[in-house]
Amino acid sequence: MSDKIYGLMAEFNTPGDVLRAAKKVRAAGYHRWDVFSPFPIHGIDKVMGLKNSMVGWVSLAMGGGAFVSGFVLLWFSNAFDYPLIVGGKPMFSVPMTFVPSYILMVMGGAIGALVGMLALNQFPRLHHPLLHKARFELVSRDKFVIVIGSTDPGFSLTETRQLLESAGGLNVDIVEDKD
């Protein structure tokens, strides 16, 4: 076992238990922690105090950027760099430019949402310290797990363990940070 510690994990048997424990963890002032569950628990984001994801902003920036670049590209290529009459239409006009730019915007927004989601999740990632824990596999079966990261300023092996145990956590265990 290496010295480096990723965090502490605790198991819970029911969604109710994990929700009550999550409330206590949040009240204790932790920031770098997460709840794992076999299925979505409605309203857990509110209990954990999670903020809205930033993905929307990435999507907006990428979509807006794609729209503007579409406009500029059509103006540059069709009206500025190599003026070409197509179908008797003006070299540059908004109705003509709008449709391709709009479609680029949809594509940019979609790619922004995907890339933003991957980046914020720190993907692609082939490995995670939690995957070393045999009992962690139970979160895809019938257990609920809270993990508190050691990078949290309030993290302490003794106090955090006490908190998790007092919140009803079973099998509280150290998660080692090894590759």
Binding site: L19, R20, K23, H42, G43, I44, K46, V47
Partner: peptide
């Protein structure tokens, strides 16, 4: 109501 709503 979900327990979550109550707690939150």
């Amino acid at each position: 109501p979900h327990l979550a709503n109550e707690l939150a």
